[in-house]
């Protein structure tokens, strides 16, 4: 039930944004996040509940990289 789908904001009109979900465009309320066109948001029951942060997008891999470095003293 807590599934939230990521999509990209195409345009914004007041608190409503048009969000592109892999080709399907839907109206989403963005009053719970600070977002601008081009941002990725995760959407649950018609509301954006969080932003998908591109900067930390690779963090999981970074963690793996660091893990390997500390354990085995080398880069992946």
């Amino acid at each position: 039930m807590c599934l939230a789908i990521p999509g990209k904001i195409i345009s914004i009109k007041k608190q409503n944004a048009t969000v592109d979900f892999r080709g399907i465009k839907k109206e989403v309320d963005i009053s719970l996040v600070s977002a601008k066109p081009g941002d990725y948001v995760v959407v649950h029951t018609g509301f954006a509940v969080g932003k998908l942060d591109k900067k930390s997008a690779n963090e999981s891999y970074k963690y793996f990289d660091e893990y390997i470095k500390t354990k085995h003293g080398k880069n992946t």
Binding site: G7, R22, L52, A57, S60, Y67, I68, K71
Partner: peptide
């Protein structure tokens, strides 16, 4: 492609590496 996938940039090869460490 799912943007979370694109942004994560994790490939099958990496999955295998994670599994090896596990």
């Amino acid at each position: 492609m799912n943007p979370t996938n694109t942004l994560m940039n994790i490939s099958k090869q990496n999955t295998e590496k994670i599994l090896d460490e596990i």
